[in-house]
Design a binder for these strands. Structure first.
Lengths: 234, 234
DNA sequence: ATTTTATTCTGGTCATACCAGTAGTACAGT
DNA sequence: ACTGTACTACTGGTATGACCAGAATAAAAT
């Protein structure tokens, strides 16, 4: 069995989801002024603390603009959104990605991974290889979700060894959607494929063979792309 | 004159900055448990609402982990941070970027821009070219800040024409630091250089010459890299 | 030593209140 | 007609104090 950890949503989280839905569905129009916190609190039967906290979170996500002592306004998330916005949109779609979104993610992943290995070949330490080898083995876990998580961790650690401070941060930003993709990929093709791809990359990295490493990355993802249509149909 | 908009910081913002400094400076060690909200509120002479709101914001930024009914713990921002973390680090350094951070940004920018033009060559519409040409001219603005903003807008719109939904989002995430870089670059070399680089890219794009377009991007940024040391010393 | 129970502590939430800044209005002075 | 003032209603930011349910830990029972 794999009983997953339970977590009750807080009122603030419920409020945030509710408003995200209303904005993404268009029920709340862009530029529109929200009712005051007091009114919202009364209408939704929660305290003002929940409303206030939820609103400031939505403001940080790029959905709302708070003008103190004036009011709260709906922002154009297509213009002011960041990567976090994508996660909200995804979540709104019931955790599913559209086909063009999958393709977008893979296009990004390939250049990020390529840069990671390209830099890592020159900059990694022997200790990095050791820890990467450990993470590599975790991909063979029978539990699909754990294997997907391990795959994410492997590539994340790989990005760390590039010594580029931003690469891991970017990787981290896309954790949720990439994890979804991996779960679907492993379900269809098994974790052995993922394992072998990663193993080849690591091997080339250890040999400091830059060209070979980049080639491995390209092959690993082009496999994903060719399979992405099927994944989408699944 | 250009009178800039005044804005008084709120207590929550002060609290967030204070804690970010303590974490980034190492005064608060990773894994350490923070005092309870009540204690913090008393010590810092503010209400619990401020502490509670500030903590949840820091949690969303990847600096803290909130375990309800247990406590608040300092997270390893290098491992769990997102792109937002970079902005905080930058802000902590008085708005300045360290040399390795500049290099990291440029390494990212080159692959992002390359992907943008690579995809755009096949996917852009004639209207895209028209609007890009308009943004291009804005780079010639004498006001340095406006020119930098225009440069950002040009590359952002370029990313939009790639039809990759994530590329613009990534671009926006890096708006602040990239803008800083451009201001410093233009101050040193003038906006004419930026204008010509962009113009060449656009020209190759219009001719659907993928190889030439990518070459232009590489040249534009390698100029920046070679100048980055000087920028850093400035 | 292990399990059960009781106590303390914590963040999440609620209710109420006051403050300072915004925005609109009406009005006085020019 | 325009400007500046005074008043007023409303808004988000903050303060205070309280209660809840779950987590952590100590105390008690087995």
């Amino acid at each position: 069995m794999d009983f997953t950890k339970l977590k009750a949503p807080t009122l603030k989280e419920l409020f945030v989801r509710e408003l995200e839905s209303m904005i993404l569905s268009g029920k709340l129009k862009i530029g529109e002024k929200l009712p005051s916190e007091r009114v919202l609190a009364e209408k939704m039967q929660v305290s003002r603390a929940v409303i206030n906290g939820g609103i400031s979170e939505l403001a940080r996500k790029g959905f709302l603009e708070v003008k103190p002592r004036s009011g709260v306004y709906v922002l154009d998330y297509r213009r002011y959104g960041t990567v976090e916005t994508l996660l909200s949109i995804m979540n709104y779609n019931g955790g599913h990605l559209r086909r063009d979104e999958i393709q977008s993610i893979l296009e990004i992943k390939i250049i990020v991974d390529k840069l990671a290995v390209e830099l890592s070949v020159d900059r990694h330490s022997p200790e990095d290889i050791v820890s990467l080898e450990a993470y590599l083995e975790d991909i063979l876990n029978d539990n699909v979700e754990k294997a997907a998580k391990a795959a994410f961790t492997f590539y994340h650690e790989l990005a760390m060894t590039s010594q580029n401070t931003l690469l891991p941060l970017i990787y981290r930003s896309f954790r949720v959607p990439v994890n979804h993709l991996w779960i679907r990929f492993i379900n269809k093709y098994g974790n052995k494929v993922v394992y072998n791809s990663a193993k080849n990359i690591l091997k080339a990295l250890k040999n400091k063979d830059k060209a070979k490493a980049i080639e491995c990355v390209e092959k690993a993802i082009s496999d994903s792309i060719s399979g992405s249509k099927e994944i989408y149909e699944a």
